[in-house]
Simulated scan of single mutants.
Amino acid sequence: MNCYKRFAHIYDDLINEDIDYGTWCLKILNLCQILNVKKQDYLDLACGTGNMTEKIAPHFQNSWAVDLSNEMLSEADEKLRNKRLKINLICEDISKLKLNRQFDLITCCLDSTNYLLEEKSLENYFRGVFNHLNSNGIFIFDINSYYKITSILSNNTYTYDDEKITYIWENYLEDEIVDMYLTFFIKCKDVYRRFDEHHRERAYKCKTIEYALKNCGLNIIGKFDNYQDKNVTDTSERIVYVVNKHTK
């Protein structure tokens, strides 16, 4: 699968129009305050270009960020350095975490969990989080809902066009996995340069996510609709989970 390579260089130009990272950050930090989370060590999983890392890291003494794409980490490194933030950036698969330390807050935002296509990988990911989470720490992550992937993304085509970037986004859904084929045309002086990316996400039902969390020793303490104080419904598109280690 070819994803988050050349796309990394234009990622922020596209995503910042749709995602309110400031609101997400405020919700996460508010949850930390309510739950008395110690603001010592923070870990951002699938950090991408570091948008969430940039906003949350200043509130913690030490911060780490993990992503599988070297290209995304390169963008994150430049951004965080420009903000004079000292972050430990690590290229690693989130389903194979081996950082040899524990954290007070772990986040994994913007449906990165859906990129884990096998339930075994999902459980390995949750076990890794369990092993890296302090006893009083919390893990906050979100997923594209089953409804969004199967009813909205599904077998649809989307287009985008402005003065600098044009793309065609074609989706094909089969066996609860959506294959997303993106063709980009980027304006460089008077010439448009093309590149292609292929992304895959799995539609997980809540019961599958919640069974895996429980099986890995993680306890759900909060569940929200898109980082808002709203209950999840059958038509929620982004579901946010707040979990901690299960206490006997």
Rank of each mutant, 00 (worst) to 15 (best):
D20G: 08
A8K: 06
I168T: 11
T159P: 04
R6D: 10
S154C: 11
D229G: 11
T107K: 06
K189S: 10
E163R: 06
K98W: 04
K207Y: 14
I34E: 00
I143A: 03
F224E: 01
D20E: 12
I94W: 09
C108D: 10
N131A: 14
I15F: 13
D234V: 12
H9D: 10
V191N: 12
C25R: 15
F224D: 07
F60M: 01
V242R: 03
M52S: 04
H199S: 07
I152A: 08
A212V: 09
I152G: 11
Q61H: 11
V242L: 13
V242Q: 04
E92D: 00
A65M: 12
H246G: 07
K86Q: 10
R194M: 10
Y181M: 13
N134V: 05
E197N: 07
N88A: 00
I10M: 10
R202Q: 01
V242D: 03
Q40H: 11
K86I: 05
L97N: 02
C32H: 08
A57Y: 02
N231I: 13
D175F: 05
T233S: 13
D20F: 08
D93C: 09
D161E: 15
K230A: 12
A76Q: 02
E197P: 09
E123A: 12
D229S: 13
H59A: 08
Y115S: 10
D196C: 04
E71K: 03
E71N: 09
N171S: 02
E75G: 06
Q102M: 05
N131V: 11
Q61S: 14
K189Y: 11
L35T: 09
E176I: 01
L14Q: 07
L153V: 15
V242F: 06
K39N: 08
K230N: 02
E163I: 01
D179K: 13
I149R: 07
S121E: 12
I94D: 01
I149A: 03
T107R: 00
T183R: 05
D225N: 14
R127A: 07
I10G: 02
E92R: 04
D12V: 01
Y227G: 01
C25K: 15
T183D: 08
R194H: 08
K27G: 05
E237D: 10
N114P: 04
T233R: 04
R6C: 00
E75Q: 15
D142W: 00
F60L: 07
I140K: 05
E210A: 09
L26F: 09
K83S: 09
D175V: 03
L153K: 03
I138W: 09
T113Y: 12
Y4L: 04
